[in-house]
Simulated scan of single mutants.
Amino acid sequence: MEENRKEILVTGGAGFIGSHLIEELLENNYKVTIVDNFDPFYSKDIKLKNISGVINSPYLKLIDLDILDLEALFTQLTGSYEVIVHLAAKAGVRPSIEDPIAYQDVNVKGTQNMLEFARHKNIKQFVFASSSSVYGTNINFPWKESDVSLKPISPYASTKISGELLGHVYSHLFGIRFIALRFFTVFGPRQRPDLAIHLFSKKILNNEAINFFGNGSTRRDYTYVADTIHGIVNAIQYTRTPYEVFNLGNHQTVSLSEMIQTLESVFNKKAIIKYLPEQMGDVPITFADIFKAEQLLNYMPRTGFRQGVINFKNWLDTQ
C-alpha cells in the first residue's frame, strides 16, 4: 500500500547513478520524487531513457526543477519526504576548470538550498554525493576518511568539500543527519557518455582515436554502479551518528593502460591511441580505504572491473 512507503526526494535522479538508485528504491517499497533540471551537459533524451523503465510507476514523480530556484523548491515539492538523496551537481573535473563559477553556484549554493529545504521541511536524513576528487594530490594511499589533508586540484573537487562542510554545519545547528558519500569512478550500464569507459568504448567501436593522456600509469579505483547503489541505500537507512563521511570505492586500482587493454579484450578490438600530455586537474591515482564503510554501512563491493566492463558492453549492445 502507498501509505506504507517512505517518501524519498532524489535530486539528479534521471542521471547515471540516480536512475539506478530510483529503480532500487522503488523495488524496496519507497515512494520517490525525482528533481532534475536536465542540465544540457549531456542529452535530456539519454536521461529520460535512463528512467523509461520506471517512469509509469504510481510511486514515482518526476519534477523538472532547478535546485538553484529556492522558491520553486518550496512551492513545487509538496511531499512528506523523510530523506533527501542529493545527487544533482554540475559534473566533471575538466569542465569545472573552464567554468568554475557555474560549478560553485550549482554545487555549493544548490546544496545549501537543498539543506535549507530540509531544515524548513523538517527532513532529518540527508545523503550527499561527494567525490574521491576531494583527496586531490594526497599521497597517503589508500585514502581514509579520517585523513584531513584534503588537497583538491579542481574547482569541482573544491565544491564537493564545500558541500561536506555545509552538511556539518546543518547537522550541528539543525539536527539533520548528514551522510557524505565519496564516490570513486563509478561505471557500468548508463554511464555518462563523457566518462572514459563509455567514451573509449564508443571510439573503439567506431575506429576513432582515443586521447591517451600521460604515460598510462594514472590509476583509478573503478566502482561498479550496483555496488555504489548498495552503499547509498544503506546510507539512507543509517542512524548511528549525526554526521559521517564514507568512501564508496572498490579498494582496487586499475591503470589507464590496463583499462584500455580490458576494453580491447572485452570488445575484441584494438584501440587506436593518440598520445597527449597529462591534463590539468587530473590526479595521478584514486584509491579508497573502505574499512569504515564496511563496518558502519555494511558496504561490500562485489563486482570486479572486468565483469563490470562485460556488463557495460552487454548494455551498450542494446542501445
Score class of each variant (00 low, 15 high):
227 D>R: 08
86 H>S: 01
169 V>A: 01
302 R>D: 06
184 F>I: 10
104 Q>A: 06
69 D>K: 13
9 L>K: 04
232 I>P: 14
173 L>T: 03
56 N>C: 03
271 A>P: 04
94 R>A: 04
37 N>H: 07
194 D>S: 14
309 V>W: 13
66 D>Y: 07
261 Q>E: 09
260 I>Q: 04
214 G>A: 11
98 E>H: 12
207 N>P: 10
285 I>H: 07
90 K>D: 10
250 N>G: 09
20 H>T: 00
246 F>W: 11
252 Q>A: 06
19 S>P: 11
277 P>V: 00
264 E>S: 02
166 L>N: 08
96 S>L: 13
272 I>A: 09
98 E>L: 14
214 G>E: 09
125 Q>V: 00
105 D>L: 15
17 I>F: 14
133 S>I: 02
282 D>Y: 03
203 K>T: 00
54 V>T: 07
273 I>H: 12
213 F>A: 01
50 N>T: 02
55 I>C: 05
126 F>P: 10
279 Q>D: 12
136 G>F: 13
278 E>D: 12
183 F>N: 10
246 F>H: 13
117 F>D: 03
130 S>D: 11
288 A>T: 01
176 I>D: 00
27 E>K: 12
128 F>D: 02
89 A>N: 04
307 Q>N: 10
120 H>S: 00
156 Y>G: 02
45 D>S: 15
160 K>W: 11
259 M>A: 12
5 R>E: 02
282 D>H: 06
257 S>C: 04
166 L>G: 08
158 S>V: 14
4 N>D: 09
212 F>L: 12
78 T>S: 14
68 L>N: 04
228 T>N: 10
139 I>Q: 08
216 G>T: 01
237 Q>H: 15
77 L>R: 13
119 R>F: 06
44 K>V: 05
314 N>E: 15
232 I>M: 15
306 R>G: 03
105 D>N: 15
38 F>Y: 15
275 Y>H: 14
82 E>S: 12
247 N>W: 10
59 Y>R: 05
267 F>I: 07
116 E>F: 07
256 L>P: 00
262 T>M: 06
253 T>V: 15
6 K>G: 09
113 N>Y: 01
160 K>P: 12
184 F>Y: 15
159 T>N: 12
182 R>P: 00
289 D>L: 12
156 Y>M: 15
135 Y>S: 04
185 T>H: 12
296 L>I: 05
243 Y>S: 08
5 R>T: 00
64 D>G: 06
56 N>F: 05
36 D>Y: 09
14 A>T: 14
55 I>W: 05
62 L>Y: 06
21 L>E: 00
277 P>Q: 02
233 V>F: 13
99 D>C: 05
280 M>Q: 15
